[in-house]
Computed example of a mutant assay.
Amino acid sequence: MSGSGTLKIPATRNRLTTGQLPRFASLYTLGVAFVLAAAVMGLIGFNAFGLAAFTSVFYLILISALSTAIENRRKAMDRFVRGLVTVAFLLALAPLVSTLWTVFSKGIGIISPAFVFTSGGSPTINPNTLEIVSSPGALQAIVGTLEITGLATLFSVPIGLLTAIYLVEYAAPTFWLRRVVNFLVDVMTGIPSIVAGLFAFSLFSLLVGPKAFSGLSAAVALSVLMIPTVVRSSEEMLRLVPADLREASYALGVTKYVTIMRIVVPTAIAGLATGVTLAIARVIGETAPIFMAASFTDAFNGNPLNGPMQTLPVMAYTGYKFPGQDIALSNDQAWGAALLLVALVIVLNLIARIIAMIFAPKTGR
Protein backbone atom coordinates (compact mmCIF):
# COMPACT_ATOMS: atom_id res chain seq x y z
CA MET A 1 0.00 0.00 0.00
CA SER A 2 1.63 3.26 -1.12
CA GLY A 3 1.22 6.66 0.44
CA SER A 4 -1.45 7.68 -2.11
CA GLY A 5 -3.63 4.80 -1.02
CA THR A 6 -3.28 2.70 -4.21
CA LEU A 7 -2.30 -0.94 -4.12
CA LYS A 8 0.56 -1.90 -6.44
CA ILE A 9 0.43 -5.47 -7.78
CA PRO A 10 3.86 -6.87 -8.61
CA ALA A 11 4.33 -7.72 -12.30
CA THR A 12 4.11 -11.43 -13.04
CA ARG A 13 5.89 -13.26 -15.84
CA ASN A 14 3.82 -14.85 -18.59
CA ARG A 15 4.30 -18.57 -18.15
CA LEU A 16 3.21 -19.22 -21.76
CA THR A 17 6.17 -17.30 -23.21
CA THR A 18 8.73 -17.62 -20.43
CA GLY A 19 11.65 -19.91 -21.16
CA GLN A 20 11.04 -20.13 -24.90
CA LEU A 21 13.16 -19.15 -27.85
CA PRO A 22 11.82 -16.40 -30.12
CA ARG A 23 9.57 -17.39 -32.99
CA PHE A 24 12.23 -17.13 -35.70
CA ALA A 25 15.13 -18.36 -33.58
CA SER A 26 15.67 -21.40 -35.79
CA LEU A 27 15.88 -19.21 -38.90
CA TYR A 28 18.32 -16.80 -37.26
CA THR A 29 20.41 -19.71 -36.01
CA LEU A 30 20.49 -21.19 -39.48
CA GLY A 31 21.76 -17.88 -40.85
CA VAL A 32 24.53 -17.71 -38.26
CA ALA A 33 25.45 -21.34 -38.98
CA PHE A 34 25.65 -20.55 -42.70
CA VAL A 35 27.95 -17.58 -42.08
CA LEU A 36 30.23 -19.70 -39.88
CA ALA A 37 30.28 -22.50 -42.46
CA ALA A 38 31.09 -20.01 -45.23
CA ALA A 39 33.97 -18.67 -43.14
CA VAL A 40 35.34 -22.18 -42.59
CA MET A 41 35.00 -23.02 -46.28
CA GLY A 42 36.78 -19.80 -47.15
CA LEU A 43 39.76 -21.01 -45.17
CA ILE A 44 39.91 -24.59 -46.45
CA GLY A 45 38.47 -24.11 -49.97
CA PHE A 46 34.92 -23.70 -51.16
CA ASN A 47 32.81 -26.78 -51.81
CA ALA A 48 29.02 -26.94 -52.01
CA PHE A 49 28.77 -30.26 -50.20
CA GLY A 50 31.17 -29.11 -47.49
CA LEU A 51 29.23 -25.87 -47.06
CA ALA A 52 25.98 -27.78 -46.54
CA ALA A 53 27.65 -30.24 -44.13
CA PHE A 54 29.28 -27.54 -41.98
CA THR A 55 26.06 -25.50 -41.96
CA SER A 56 24.13 -28.52 -40.69
CA VAL A 57 26.67 -29.30 -37.96
CA PHE A 58 26.89 -25.69 -36.76
CA TYR A 59 23.10 -25.36 -36.76
CA LEU A 60 22.59 -28.46 -34.64
CA ILE A 61 25.23 -27.33 -32.15
CA LEU A 62 23.94 -23.75 -31.89
CA ILE A 63 20.24 -24.57 -31.64
CA SER A 64 20.92 -27.21 -28.99
CA ALA A 65 23.08 -24.83 -26.94
CA LEU A 66 20.56 -21.97 -27.16
CA SER A 67 17.64 -24.21 -26.26
CA THR A 68 19.52 -25.69 -23.31
CA ALA A 69 20.44 -22.25 -21.97
CA ILE A 70 17.05 -20.56 -22.44
CA GLU A 71 14.52 -23.40 -22.40
CA ASN A 72 15.36 -26.75 -20.85
CA ARG A 73 17.09 -30.00 -21.63
CA ARG A 74 13.97 -31.75 -22.89
CA LYS A 75 13.16 -29.01 -25.42
CA ALA A 76 16.80 -28.87 -26.45
CA MET A 77 16.79 -32.57 -27.24
CA ASP A 78 13.50 -32.11 -29.13
CA ARG A 79 14.99 -29.33 -31.26
CA PHE A 80 18.16 -31.35 -31.87
CA VAL A 81 16.26 -34.43 -33.06
CA ARG A 82 13.93 -32.28 -35.17
CA GLY A 83 16.92 -30.62 -36.82
CA LEU A 84 18.62 -33.98 -37.33
CA VAL A 85 15.55 -35.39 -39.06
CA THR A 86 15.31 -32.29 -41.26
CA VAL A 87 18.97 -32.59 -42.25
CA ALA A 88 18.49 -36.29 -43.06
CA PHE A 89 15.48 -35.42 -45.22
CA LEU A 90 17.42 -32.76 -47.11
CA LEU A 91 20.33 -35.16 -47.63
CA ALA A 92 17.93 -37.74 -49.08
CA LEU A 93 16.32 -35.08 -51.28
CA ALA A 94 19.61 -33.67 -52.59
CA PRO A 95 20.44 -36.51 -55.04
CA LEU A 96 16.94 -36.36 -56.51
CA VAL A 97 17.07 -32.60 -57.01
CA SER A 98 20.60 -32.84 -58.42
CA THR A 99 19.59 -35.58 -60.86
CA LEU A 100 16.51 -33.74 -62.06
CA TRP A 101 18.44 -30.51 -62.52
CA THR A 102 21.26 -32.26 -64.42
CA VAL A 103 18.85 -34.03 -66.77
CA PHE A 104 16.82 -30.87 -67.33
CA SER A 105 19.79 -28.58 -67.91
CA LYS A 106 21.52 -30.96 -70.33
CA GLY A 107 18.42 -32.18 -72.15
CA ILE A 108 16.32 -29.05 -72.56
CA GLY A 109 18.62 -27.70 -75.29
CA ILE A 110 17.72 -30.43 -77.79
CA ILE A 111 14.02 -30.75 -76.99
CA SER A 112 12.07 -29.39 -79.95
CA PRO A 113 9.12 -30.43 -82.13
CA ALA A 114 11.59 -31.74 -84.69
CA PHE A 115 13.28 -33.93 -82.08
CA VAL A 116 10.01 -35.27 -80.68
CA PHE A 117 8.12 -35.84 -83.93
CA THR A 118 10.87 -37.15 -86.24
CA SER A 119 12.41 -40.59 -86.39
CA GLY A 120 15.46 -42.33 -87.83
CA GLY A 121 17.32 -40.90 -90.77
CA SER A 122 15.80 -37.42 -90.54
CA PRO A 123 18.32 -34.78 -91.66
CA THR A 124 19.30 -32.04 -89.27
CA ILE A 125 21.94 -29.32 -89.06
CA ASN A 126 24.68 -29.53 -86.51
CA PRO A 127 24.70 -26.13 -84.75
CA ASN A 128 28.45 -26.39 -84.10
CA THR A 129 29.72 -27.26 -87.59
CA LEU A 130 26.67 -26.25 -89.69
CA GLU A 131 26.89 -29.63 -91.41
CA ILE A 132 23.84 -31.68 -92.40
CA VAL A 133 23.86 -34.88 -90.40
CA SER A 134 21.43 -37.72 -89.89
CA SER A 135 19.64 -37.45 -86.55
CA PRO A 136 17.60 -40.36 -85.20
CA GLY A 137 15.09 -38.14 -83.44
CA ALA A 138 12.97 -39.59 -80.63
CA LEU A 139 9.65 -40.53 -82.26
CA GLN A 140 10.55 -44.20 -82.65
CA ALA A 141 11.72 -44.29 -79.03
CA ILE A 142 8.55 -42.64 -77.71
CA VAL A 143 6.30 -44.99 -79.70
CA GLY A 144 8.36 -48.01 -78.68
CA THR A 145 8.27 -47.03 -75.01
CA LEU A 146 4.50 -46.59 -75.03
CA GLU A 147 3.84 -49.82 -76.94
CA ILE A 148 6.18 -52.04 -74.93
CA THR A 149 5.05 -50.61 -71.59
CA GLY A 150 1.39 -50.84 -72.64
CA LEU A 151 1.76 -54.52 -73.58
CA ALA A 152 3.60 -55.24 -70.33
CA THR A 153 0.77 -53.58 -68.39
CA LEU A 154 -1.81 -55.58 -70.36
CA PHE A 155 -0.03 -58.81 -69.39
CA SER A 156 0.81 -57.94 -65.79
CA VAL A 157 -2.23 -56.21 -64.33
CA PRO A 158 -4.78 -59.06 -64.79
CA ILE A 159 -2.32 -61.67 -63.53
CA GLY A 160 -1.19 -59.57 -60.57
CA LEU A 161 -4.68 -58.44 -59.56
CA LEU A 162 -6.21 -61.92 -59.79
CA THR A 163 -3.29 -63.37 -57.80
CA ALA A 164 -3.80 -60.75 -55.08
CA ILE A 165 -7.54 -61.50 -54.96
CA TYR A 166 -6.79 -65.20 -54.57
CA LEU A 167 -4.30 -64.61 -51.76
CA VAL A 168 -6.61 -62.26 -49.83
CA GLU A 169 -10.09 -63.61 -50.50
CA TYR A 170 -9.80 -67.33 -51.24
CA ALA A 171 -6.60 -68.93 -49.97
CA ALA A 172 -6.52 -70.07 -46.35
CA PRO A 173 -3.54 -68.76 -44.33
CA THR A 174 -2.10 -72.27 -43.91
CA PHE A 175 -2.88 -73.58 -47.41
CA TRP A 176 0.21 -74.90 -49.18
CA LEU A 177 -0.52 -73.16 -52.48
CA ARG A 178 -0.72 -69.80 -50.72
CA ARG A 179 2.73 -70.32 -49.21
CA VAL A 180 4.13 -71.37 -52.59
CA VAL A 181 2.66 -68.31 -54.36
CA ASN A 182 4.00 -65.96 -51.68
CA PHE A 183 7.43 -67.53 -51.96
CA LEU A 184 7.48 -67.25 -55.75
CA VAL A 185 6.33 -63.62 -55.63
CA ASP A 186 9.10 -62.80 -53.18
CA VAL A 187 11.65 -64.52 -55.43
CA MET A 188 10.38 -62.63 -58.49
CA THR A 189 10.67 -59.35 -56.60
CA GLY A 190 14.42 -59.87 -56.24
CA ILE A 191 15.12 -61.04 -59.80
CA PRO A 192 17.68 -58.78 -61.54
CA SER A 193 16.21 -56.99 -64.52
CA ILE A 194 18.80 -58.37 -66.94
CA VAL A 195 17.77 -61.91 -65.99
CA ALA A 196 14.21 -61.07 -67.04
CA GLY A 197 15.56 -59.86 -70.38
CA LEU A 198 17.58 -63.04 -70.88
CA PHE A 199 14.52 -65.13 -70.02
CA ALA A 200 12.34 -63.32 -72.58
CA PHE A 201 15.01 -63.50 -75.30
CA SER A 202 15.60 -67.20 -74.66
CA LEU A 203 11.87 -67.92 -74.72
CA PHE A 204 11.31 -66.16 -78.02
CA SER A 205 14.48 -67.70 -79.49
CA LEU A 206 12.94 -71.10 -78.88
CA LEU A 207 9.61 -70.00 -80.37
CA VAL A 208 10.60 -67.96 -83.42
CA GLY A 209 14.28 -68.69 -83.97
CA PRO A 210 17.52 -66.74 -83.49
CA LYS A 211 16.06 -63.43 -84.75
CA ALA A 212 13.89 -63.02 -81.67
CA PHE A 213 14.23 -59.27 -81.13
CA SER A 214 10.78 -57.71 -80.86
CA GLY A 215 8.71 -55.37 -78.76
CA LEU A 216 6.59 -58.30 -77.59
CA SER A 217 9.68 -60.02 -76.20
CA ALA A 218 10.60 -56.85 -74.27
CA ALA A 219 7.02 -56.57 -72.99
CA VAL A 220 7.25 -60.10 -71.61
CA ALA A 221 10.51 -59.20 -69.87
CA LEU A 222 8.94 -56.12 -68.28
CA SER A 223 5.86 -58.08 -67.22
CA VAL A 224 8.13 -60.44 -65.25
CA LEU A 225 9.30 -57.39 -63.30
CA MET A 226 5.84 -55.84 -62.99
CA ILE A 227 3.84 -58.83 -61.77
CA PRO A 228 5.33 -59.08 -58.23
CA THR A 229 4.95 -55.32 -57.73
CA VAL A 230 1.31 -55.42 -58.79
CA VAL A 231 0.65 -58.47 -56.62
CA ARG A 232 2.11 -56.93 -53.46
CA SER A 233 0.54 -53.49 -53.89
CA SER A 234 -2.87 -54.95 -54.77
CA GLU A 235 -2.68 -57.41 -51.88
CA GLU A 236 -2.05 -54.63 -49.38
CA MET A 237 -4.89 -52.50 -50.76
CA LEU A 238 -7.36 -55.39 -50.62
CA ARG A 239 -6.38 -56.14 -47.02
CA LEU A 240 -7.25 -52.56 -46.06
CA VAL A 241 -10.89 -53.10 -47.00
CA PRO A 242 -12.80 -53.58 -43.71
CA ALA A 243 -14.03 -57.11 -43.06
CA ASP A 244 -17.36 -55.64 -41.92
CA LEU A 245 -18.19 -54.75 -45.52
CA ARG A 246 -17.68 -58.33 -46.63
CA GLU A 247 -19.70 -59.71 -43.70
CA ALA A 248 -22.55 -57.30 -44.35
CA SER A 249 -22.65 -58.37 -47.98
CA TYR A 250 -22.64 -62.07 -47.06
CA ALA A 251 -25.43 -61.44 -44.52
CA LEU A 252 -27.60 -60.16 -47.34
CA GLY A 253 -27.07 -63.38 -49.27
CA VAL A 254 -24.63 -61.98 -51.82
CA THR A 255 -22.21 -64.49 -53.28
CA LYS A 256 -18.47 -64.22 -52.73
CA TYR A 257 -17.76 -63.39 -56.37
CA VAL A 258 -20.28 -60.55 -56.44
CA THR A 259 -19.01 -59.28 -53.09
CA ILE A 260 -15.48 -59.07 -54.45
CA MET A 261 -16.53 -57.38 -57.70
CA ARG A 262 -19.13 -54.99 -56.23
CA ILE A 263 -17.79 -54.28 -52.74
CA VAL A 264 -14.12 -55.12 -52.25
CA VAL A 265 -12.59 -54.01 -55.55
CA PRO A 266 -14.54 -50.70 -55.83
CA THR A 267 -13.58 -49.83 -52.25
CA ALA A 268 -9.89 -50.43 -52.96
CA ILE A 269 -9.91 -49.08 -56.53
CA ALA A 270 -7.97 -45.91 -55.65
CA GLY A 271 -5.11 -47.85 -54.08
CA LEU A 272 -5.17 -50.47 -56.83
CA ALA A 273 -4.92 -47.82 -59.56
CA THR A 274 -2.12 -46.05 -57.72
CA GLY A 275 -0.16 -49.28 -57.27
CA VAL A 276 -0.52 -50.21 -60.93
CA THR A 277 0.55 -46.75 -62.08
CA LEU A 278 3.60 -46.80 -59.81
CA ALA A 279 4.48 -50.27 -61.11
CA ILE A 280 4.36 -48.89 -64.66
CA ALA A 281 6.57 -45.98 -63.65
CA ARG A 282 9.01 -48.45 -62.10
CA VAL A 283 9.53 -50.54 -65.27
CA ILE A 284 9.22 -47.83 -67.91
CA GLY A 285 12.82 -46.78 -67.28
CA GLU A 286 14.33 -50.26 -67.48
CA THR A 287 17.19 -50.52 -69.95
CA ALA A 288 18.86 -53.93 -69.61
CA PRO A 289 15.83 -56.20 -70.26
CA ILE A 290 14.67 -54.13 -73.24
CA PHE A 291 18.19 -53.98 -74.66
CA MET A 292 18.44 -57.78 -74.39
CA ALA A 293 14.95 -58.57 -75.71
CA ALA A 294 14.23 -55.82 -78.25
CA SER A 295 17.73 -54.55 -79.11
CA PHE A 296 17.71 -51.01 -80.56
CA THR A 297 17.29 -49.24 -83.88
CA ASP A 298 17.16 -45.72 -85.24
CA ALA A 299 14.51 -46.67 -87.79
CA PHE A 300 10.84 -46.31 -86.95
CA ASN A 301 9.18 -49.63 -86.12
CA GLY A 302 5.62 -49.54 -84.83
CA ASN A 303 5.09 -53.29 -85.05
CA PRO A 304 5.89 -54.93 -81.69
CA LEU A 305 5.66 -58.41 -83.24
CA ASN A 306 8.55 -58.11 -85.66
CA GLY A 307 12.00 -56.60 -85.53
CA PRO A 308 13.97 -54.51 -83.04
CA MET A 309 12.33 -51.54 -81.35
CA GLN A 310 13.75 -48.46 -79.71
CA THR A 311 12.75 -47.06 -76.32
CA LEU A 312 13.69 -43.90 -74.46
CA PRO A 313 15.96 -45.54 -71.83
CA VAL A 314 17.75 -47.60 -74.48
CA MET A 315 18.12 -44.49 -76.66
CA ALA A 316 19.72 -42.65 -73.74
CA TYR A 317 22.10 -45.58 -73.19
CA THR A 318 23.07 -46.10 -76.82
CA GLY A 319 23.58 -42.36 -77.31
CA TYR A 320 26.56 -42.63 -74.94
CA LYS A 321 27.64 -46.21 -75.56
CA PHE A 322 27.36 -46.19 -79.39
CA PRO A 323 27.59 -42.56 -80.50
CA GLY A 324 27.51 -41.56 -84.16
CA GLN A 325 30.08 -39.55 -86.07
CA ASP A 326 29.07 -36.43 -84.15
CA ILE A 327 29.69 -37.54 -80.58
CA ALA A 328 28.43 -34.28 -79.05
CA LEU A 329 25.14 -34.51 -80.94
CA SER A 330 24.68 -38.16 -79.88
CA ASN A 331 25.26 -37.17 -76.26
CA ASP A 332 22.72 -34.35 -76.56
CA GLN A 333 20.17 -36.79 -77.98
CA ALA A 334 20.84 -39.13 -75.07
CA TRP A 335 20.13 -36.34 -72.58
CA GLY A 336 17.01 -35.38 -74.52
CA ALA A 337 15.74 -38.96 -74.35
CA ALA A 338 16.45 -39.02 -70.61
CA LEU A 339 14.51 -35.79 -70.13
CA LEU A 340 11.52 -37.13 -72.08
CA LEU A 341 11.60 -40.29 -69.96
CA VAL A 342 11.65 -38.30 -66.71
CA ALA A 343 8.75 -36.18 -67.95
CA LEU A 344 6.80 -39.32 -68.83
CA VAL A 345 7.39 -40.80 -65.35
CA ILE A 346 6.28 -37.53 -63.72
CA VAL A 347 3.09 -37.54 -65.81
CA LEU A 348 2.36 -41.13 -64.76
CA ASN A 349 2.80 -40.25 -61.09
CA LEU A 350 0.48 -37.26 -61.47
CA ILE A 351 -2.09 -39.53 -63.11
CA ALA A 352 -1.79 -41.90 -60.16
CA ARG A 353 -2.43 -39.04 -57.72
CA ILE A 354 -5.44 -37.83 -59.70
CA ILE A 355 -6.90 -41.34 -59.89
CA ALA A 356 -6.42 -41.78 -56.14
CA MET A 357 -8.24 -38.50 -55.43
CA ILE A 358 -11.12 -39.25 -57.80
CA PHE A 359 -11.79 -42.83 -56.72
CA ALA A 360 -10.90 -42.51 -53.04
CA PRO A 361 -13.84 -43.37 -50.72
CA LYS A 362 -15.73 -40.28 -49.67
CA THR A 363 -15.75 -39.79 -45.89
CA GLY A 364 -18.26 -36.92 -45.79
CA ARG A 365 -22.02 -37.22 -45.96
Rank of each mutant, 00 (worst) to 15 (best):
S2W: 04
S4R: 12
G5Y: 09
P10L: 04
N14L: 12
F24S: 12
A25V: 05
Y28P: 00
Y28G: 13
V32F: 14
V32L: 15
A39P: 01
G42H: 05
L43Q: 04
F54L: 15
S56M: 12
I61E: 07
L62A: 13
L66T: 05
L66N: 06
T68K: 14
I70R: 14
N72M: 04
A76T: 04
R82Y: 11
L84I: 00
V85P: 02
V97L: 13
L100Y: 14
W101Q: 11
I108Y: 07
A114K: 14
F117T: 06
T118I: 03
G121W: 12
E131W: 01
I132N: 08
S134D: 09
S135I: 04
A141D: 13
A141Y: 03
L146S: 06
T149M: 00
P158L: 03
I165A: 08
F175T: 10
W176E: 08
L177P: 02
L177I: 15
N182W: 09
F183E: 09
L184S: 08
G190C: 02
P192R: 06
A196I: 03
A200K: 10
S202Y: 11
L203Y: 11
L207N: 01
P210C: 00
P210T: 06
V220H: 01
S223F: 08
P228M: 07
L238V: 03
A248S: 15
G253I: 03
K256D: 06
K256E: 11
K256L: 07
P266G: 02
T267Q: 10
A268E: 00
A270L: 02
A273I: 09
G275W: 05
I280R: 04
R282Q: 09
R282A: 05
E286G: 04
P289F: 01
F291L: 15
F291G: 05
F296S: 11
T297D: 02
A299H: 01
G307Q: 01
T311F: 11
A316T: 13
A316M: 14
Y320E: 01
P323A: 05
Q325Y: 07
D326L: 02
N331I: 13
D332G: 11
Q333S: 09
A337V: 10
A338M: 13
L339N: 05
L341A: 09
A352N: 08
I354N: 05
I355D: 02
A356M: 03
A356L: 07
P361S: 01
